[in-house]
Amino acid sequence: MTFRENANIGSGRARRAGGGGKVAAGGGLGALLVALVVMLLGGDPGQVLGSQEEAAPQAQNVDLAECRTGADANADVDCRMKATMVSLEDYWTAVLPDADPTTAILFSGSVQTQCGSASSAVGPFYCPLDRRIYLDTGFFDQLEGQLGADGGSFSQMYVLAHEYGHHVQNWTGALQYSQQDPRGPESGAVRVELQADCFAGAWAGNATRTEDDEGNPLLQELTREDVESAMSAASAVGDDSIQERVQGQVTPHTWSHGSSEQRMGWFMRGYESGDANRCDTLNAASVDDYEG
């Protein structure tokens, strides 16, 4: 997906955490995948955060002032995240006008949050205590090189849209079901994650109609390649895909995010309907009912 070059992205609620940080010892692919099994893309951060070694104190967050236009977003990943936040906020403000928007904090190495300290090994996550999204954009290299996504820009935007979906769930109260019922193929955790995928799809189905502060369209029309890019990311982070890579077998009773097929299916349900109201995974008879 390409941003219109003259789109104004200055209002995007994205900040970069100042200062560096020591990445936890024992990182790399093994640590990343173990963390992904626990909480990739917004699971319960309390299970992982604070367990990393020597996370450095976070300096004051700084505006991405250099990110001004859609052309900047097309050229730079930080600016792309800022621009995506403009689009997500425009969409969700229209759907849920009473819900406050969230902010994305981009960091490198480690970060301090109200949910605890975290290193990059935990992957992207949403902290419900401070109501912020945290993302080390280096994760996108892992998503492509080690987990098998295609590396397209829309796969990156899907990740952020999924996390914004958790913010919506925090506002509606749905996020609590992830903690109350954290494991199993039909668990509350899986249903919460699949709803966030569906929410990401609903945004994607409306993204080309989102506007900047001046009322101008933010994005060009989605292509088949854009949708396939998002699907490749959703497939890469399915519980079955990760378990096969880590342990060589699939154990559904430990699932917390859903299978690759389910994640793709719920994303497409949201995308094809363009309606977040079609994303009620919590009351679905089965998490396999994404075609209903």
Results as ranks from 00 to 15, higher is better:
residue 227 V to L: 15
residue 40 L to S: 11
residue 282 L to E: 10
residue 227 V to A: 07
residue 162 H to G: 04
residue 269 R to V: 03
residue 187 S to M: 09
residue 253 H to W: 09
residue 129 L to P: 00
residue 220 Q to D: 06
residue 269 R to W: 06
residue 236 A to I: 06
residue 3 F to W: 12
residue 210 T to E: 09
residue 138 G to S: 15
residue 33 L to Q: 07
residue 264 M to A: 05
residue 175 L to C: 01
residue 208 T to A: 14
residue 123 G to F: 02
residue 163 E to I: 00
residue 214 E to T: 05
residue 14 A to T: 12
residue 130 D to W: 07
residue 143 L to C: 07
residue 286 S to E: 05
residue 164 Y to D: 05
residue 277 N to A: 13
residue 262 Q to S: 04
residue 228 E to K: 13
residue 243 Q to E: 08
residue 41 L to A: 14
residue 209 R to D: 10
residue 108 S to L: 13
residue 244 E to P: 00
residue 274 G to F: 00
residue 49 L to W: 06
residue 207 A to T: 07
residue 114 Q to C: 02
residue 17 A to S: 11
residue 51 S to D: 01
residue 141 D to I: 08
residue 177 Y to K: 07
residue 119 S to E: 03
residue 33 L to I: 13
residue 207 A to M: 11
residue 168 V to I: 15
residue 261 E to I: 11
residue 200 A to I: 07
residue 188 G to R: 08
residue 107 F to E: 03
residue 132 R to N: 09
residue 134 Y to D: 03
residue 214 E to K: 14
residue 253 H to R: 11
residue 2 T to P: 00
residue 62 V to K: 15
residue 278 R to K: 07
residue 137 T to W: 11
residue 47 Q to G: 05
residue 144 E to N: 12
residue 120 S to V: 05
residue 142 Q to E: 04
residue 152 G to P: 02
residue 282 L to A: 14
residue 254 T to H: 08
residue 248 G to R: 03
residue 102 T to R: 09
residue 257 H to P: 04
residue 69 T to I: 07
residue 243 Q to S: 09
residue 276 A to E: 09
residue 42 G to N: 10
residue 98 D to H: 13
residue 70 G to P: 01
residue 217 P to C: 11
residue 206 N to R: 14
residue 196 A to V: 07
residue 147 L to Y: 15
residue 136 D to L: 15
residue 74 N to P: 06
residue 61 N to P: 14
residue 110 S to Y: 05
residue 147 L to W: 11
residue 11 S to R: 12
residue 169 Q to F: 11
residue 64 L to S: 07
residue 183 R to F: 10
residue 158 Y to H: 11
residue 95 V to S: 10
residue 109 G to M: 08
residue 155 S to W: 01
residue 236 A to H: 04
residue 273 S to D: 00
residue 265 G to Y: 04
residue 126 Y to V: 01
residue 227 V to I: 15
residue 207 A to W: 01
residue 250 V to I: 15
residue 118 A to S: 14
residue 57 P to Q: 09
residue 147 L to M: 15
residue 93 T to N: 14
residue 135 L to P: 04
residue 205 G to S: 05
residue 154 F to R: 10
residue 59 A to C: 08
residue 168 V to H: 04
residue 89 E to G: 00
residue 83 A to G: 14
residue 286 S to R: 12
residue 122 V to T: 07
residue 11 S to V: 02
residue 45 P to D: 01
residue 148 G to P: 03
residue 46 G to I: 03
residue 31 A to Y: 10
residue 249 Q to N: 13
residue 35 A to E: 04
residue 138 G to W: 14
residue 215 G to S: 02
residue 252 P to G: 10
residue 27 G to M: 01
residue 166 H to K: 03
residue 32 L to H: 09
residue 219 L to V: 03
residue 43 G to T: 07
residue 85 M to E: 10
residue 62 V to G: 12
residue 105 I to N: 13
residue 39 M to Q: 14
residue 235 S to F: 08
residue 83 A to I: 10
residue 130 D to R: 11
residue 78 D to Y: 14
residue 236 A to W: 12
residue 266 W to K: 01
residue 46 G to M: 02
residue 79 C to V: 03
residue 224 R to E: 09
residue 132 R to D: 02
residue 247 Q to M: 14
